[in-house]
Simulated assay, not measured.
Amino acid sequence: MDSVLDYLLTAPTEVAALTSVRAAWQRHQRTAERFDVPVDAALACGFGADRLGYAFLSGYQAALRALLPELAPGELVSLCATEAGGGHPAAIRTAVTERDGEWFVDGTKTFATLGGPADRLVVIGSVGAGADGRNRLRAVLVDTDQSAVVRTELPETPFIPEIPHAAVTFTDARARALPGDGYSGYLKPFRTIEDIHVLAAALGWLIRMGRSGAVARPLLEQLLATAAALRDLGRMPASSPGAHIALGGVLARFDELPQSTAPIWERVDPADRARWERDLALLRVAGKVRGLRLEAAWHAVRDSAG
């Protein structure tokens, strides 16, 4: 196979139903091992998902591998940032401390995607205020097989209910510190990386659905062109203003999906159409934050050009 784009056009469109997160994760691993780049794995594994929720799982896990290539292939991972005050750096109160060369975590994360079944957590915590008074963040890895980590399952969300979320409390939990600043090195770039890889996985799933419904070639060509754009974005630094601006253009295409993909839903199983209508909100999450990032990227470009 020359590329993941060829894979999306030639892989079998019939896939067995998935019945759990673990089953979806096992299928993801079998497909992902064929691709060296996380965004390609997101596209291919999304194609193999039987619904948008499990495509999200693939995109989310691929995004974490793009952020942290050293993660073991078989580990289901969750990034934990959100707290009672939100996900803004100033709102993070979970404490990360070093004692005698070891790192420990204390605090509660209120909304961790896949936090319940995760084997390992990427936790964003505070190491205290800097000289400028700002909250200084650190990213650490925490294994979940320790009694110091307590996870509480949260109610299902209205869309992609197959993907569980949990509140996670740490009480002197042992951790391994990651190098660099927790905000600029991990939390900030992950927001962009996650967008790219989750959109790629959703697109892979849509291409399979389009092929299953034998839609006209122009629609598949449009979806594949968007996949090619996401592949390039997945290879660019998340700090690039150009990448953010191009991603804004891709997101605008996704806003048109309810209309442009209508021929797909006329031809597929009604259960697939119903799930699509229920889960479409996933693609519109954090629209305000995305808008702010796009405006900041344009400001950076104008400042550089000026």
Rank of each mutant, 00 (worst) to 15 (best):
G133Q: 05
F35C: 02
G249P: 09
A281V: 14
T110P: 02
E14V: 14
R176K: 12
D143G: 14
A32N: 00
G133F: 06
A66I: 00
P117I: 06
L257K: 00
T144K: 00
G234T: 05
T261P: 00
L114Y: 09
T169P: 00
R284A: 12
T82N: 01
L76V: 11
V105S: 10
R99I: 10
F56A: 02
A274W: 11
V122G: 01
V140N: 05
G185M: 03
A229M: 14
A112Y: 03
L8T: 02
A262I: 10
L223C: 04
A214Q: 15
G291N: 06
A227M: 05
V122Q: 03
E102P: 07
R176Y: 12
P158Q: 12
I124Y: 06
L223M: 08
S20R: 08
L283G: 10
A44T: 05
L187P: 02
G48R: 08
A81I: 10
S212N: 09
A139R: 07
R284F: 15
H299K: 08
A229D: 07
L18I: 12
A72K: 09
E98W: 11
A55L: 11
P189F: 14
A216W: 07
A246M: 12
D279T: 07
G133N: 04
V285M: 12
L220Q: 01
F104Q: 14
L5Y: 00
L178N: 06
W25E: 02
V123H: 02
G125E: 07
V122A: 02
P69M: 12
E266R: 15
A66P: 06
G116V: 09
P117T: 01
G180E: 05
A216H: 14
D145Q: 14
A216N: 13
H88L: 11
V39P: 05
F190N: 01
Q26I: 12
E221W: 03
L18D: 05
R293C: 03
L57P: 08
A72E: 11
A252R: 06
R99C: 11
P189E: 12
D272C: 15
D145Y: 04
V15P: 03
L219N: 04
T152V: 14
G133H: 05
P237C: 15
L199W: 09
A63G: 07
F170Y: 13
A238G: 09
R34I: 03
D181Q: 03
V77G: 04
G130C: 08
M209Y: 02
I163S: 06
R253S: 13
V150M: 11
G130L: 07
P38L: 01
C80G: 04
A17P: 05
D143C: 15
P218G: 10
E33D: 08
T31L: 15
P117R: 03
D2S: 14
F159Q: 08
A44R: 01
R120C: 12
A112R: 03
R211S: 04
L52G: 06
R290E: 08
A44F: 13
G101V: 12
A286F: 15
G213D: 11
L280Q: 11
Q61E: 10
G128C: 13
D143E: 15
L282K: 07
L79E: 07
G210Y: 02
G101K: 10
A49T: 04
I245R: 05
S147F: 10
T19Y: 05
V142N: 01
Q259D: 07
E266Q: 15
R278I: 14
M236Q: 15
R34K: 11
L68Q: 10
R99E: 15
A175K: 03
L71M: 09
L121D: 01
